[in-house]
């Protein structure tokens, strides 16, 4: 199994990343990916910049744990996770989640699972900056509910 996790200030090239994942898992018949972006609007107005703070050390560990949980749960071949930190401009790429598997269902579900867990367990905090000044992005109850749907029956 192939697993690579990065936390970085710099941008990423989705095409190059997916190519690398494909090359690392040539048995794959399915490649699914999700890219999260800085939207240029918020409830308070136009957003020009997003600042992402994180907890160095814990962040990498949390992403590794989320990827490993996905590996245990679905028959995946490879996972690539990238999350950016620091100051990002509107429409910039924030996060890449990608997975390969023999057949599509495992990769589809694993990507959704990893995003739902990342949103509620990985220590990142977003601050939006715009014509309204700046504010911390509030955690959404719907993200917590999205995670709950993956809970396995005891």
């Amino acid at each position: 199994m192939y697993l690579k996790v990065s936390v970085q200030p710099g941008d990423f090239d989705v095409g190059a990343e997916l190519q690398q994942l494909r090359a690392a898992t040539p048995q794959a018949g399915a490649l699914v990916n999700f890219v999260g972006l800085v939207r240029d609007v918020s409830t308070d107005g136009q957003v020009s910049e997003m600042v992402i703070e994180h907890y160095p050390g814990m962040t990498e560990k949390a992403l590794q744990q989320i990827a490993q949980q996905a590996m245990q749960r679905w028959p995946l071949l490879g996972i690539r996770l990238i999350h950016r930190v620091g100051s990002l401009t509107a429409q910039a790429q924030i996060v890449l989640v990608a997975a390969t598997s023999l057949h599509r269902q495992a990769a589809f579900e694993a990507c959704a699972f990893m995003m739902d867990y990342l949103k509620t367990e990985a220590p990142f905090w977003k601050k939006e900056v715009g014509d309204f000044g700046q504010h911390w992005v509030e955690a959404r109850a719907s993200d917590e509910q999205a995670k709950q749907q993956w809970k396995l029956p005891k």
């Binding site: 814990m58 949390a62 999350h83 924030i94 990342l118 990985a122 905090w125 911390w136 955690a139």
Partner: peptide, 29 residues
């Protein structure tokens, strides 16, 4: 709260030299 990089609840215990962190609900992704 986290103790040594692991999310914990209020009843969790820490030891000498541990790193404890306090933060708001996370908003990454």
């Amino acid at each position: 709260a986290a103790i040594n990089h692991e999310l914990v609840d209020d009843m969790a215990t820490f030891d000498e030299g541990d790193e404890v962190a306090f933060f708001p609900p996370v908003t990454g992704g």
